[in-house]
Simulated assay, not measured.
Amino acid sequence: MDWLTEFPQIGGRNLRLMSRTIDQQYRAFSRAFGNDIEALFRPLLDFLLWFEKLLLQTPWWIVIAVLVAIVWFASRSKGITAGTFVALMLIGIFGMWEDTMRTLSIIIVCTLMSIIVGLPIGIIMSRSDKVQAVINPILDVMQTMPSFVYLIPIVMLLGIGLIPGLIVVVIYAMPPIIRLTNLGIRLVDKEVLEAANAFGSSSWQKLTQVQLPLALPTIMAGINQTIMMALAMVVVASLIGVRGLGQPVLQAITNQYFTQGVLNGMAIVAIAIIFDRASQAYGKRLQRHREAAHG
């Protein structure tokens, strides 16, 4: 047999053998440590369930009033605020309120987790080119890997449920906040930092009183993108038990329920637009305030 035809067969056998070995080792790892890893994330799950219950049990008009007030505070735009009110009312009228509240709770919790984990990583990256060189390829993989691929190792490790869903959404949504925190801090004017050094500021004082405030508009852009990516995972995460607007969309695809799929998809779009417009408007306000302060 010619080596050109023999080589792929040998390579294929080796690849299958290696894959089988890795699969066996991963299964052994999941059996040994799966419960411990799940217990580690149990407080996060408890917080999510509490927040979801709070949104579901609070009267709808109070929830709408609070959300509209938050959007008004962030955007100071009558158009965005009125659009938010109309969208939330339509969501309730078409019977999607409970699923929307579940989606809202997981998006808010996952965004908070992404900020808590991603912000320090972005700060560390901004302080060291070597750390940036190590983390950037990891972020590239996280952003380019197909979303369904995230499900495979996590479902094998933790099974089906809310905890693996939370982890999948956080992993998928975290890269933008890390990248833009790093970028925002690196873009702070060197003359401002020199002035802070001249006043004898410590590294912590420079970070909290100079770098982070000046980088806040860029960080807000990262938070905006993190929210959008978390929303993009809603339908995919419904495959592993995440409740909310993604499940009716998945049912509509499976059973060919056109109206149900379109309405729930439009609800996801409405929530995405509300978050996007409010966070963008808030970021622009921060930018104008920064420019006025330095003008």
Rank of each mutant, 00 (worst) to 15 (best):
G246N: 07
L231D: 11
N264I: 10
V236R: 00
L263P: 02
L231Q: 05
T226I: 05
I274R: 07
M266T: 15
A270W: 01
Q251K: 15
V269S: 11
M228T: 08
I253T: 07
S238A: 15
Q225P: 05
M229D: 10
P248E: 04
D276Q: 05
Q225A: 13
I253G: 02
T259Q: 08
I268V: 12
G265L: 06
I227R: 01
M229L: 12
I273R: 04
V249W: 01
M266G: 01
M233H: 03
I271E: 06
A267Q: 06
Q260L: 12
I227G: 11
A270N: 03
R277N: 09
V236S: 00
A272H: 03
I274P: 06
F258N: 04
L231C: 07
A270I: 05
F258S: 06
Y257E: 13
T254F: 08
A230R: 01
I227S: 06
M229G: 07
T226V: 05
A237N: 07
F258K: 04
V242T: 14
A270L: 06
V236M: 02
A272C: 03
G246A: 04
S238R: 00
L231P: 10
A230E: 07
T226K: 00
A252P: 08
M266Q: 03
A252L: 10
L245F: 02
L231V: 06
A252R: 07
A232H: 03
V235G: 14
V235Y: 08
G241P: 09
G241Y: 04
V234Y: 02
A272S: 14
A230C: 03
Q260W: 05
I227D: 10
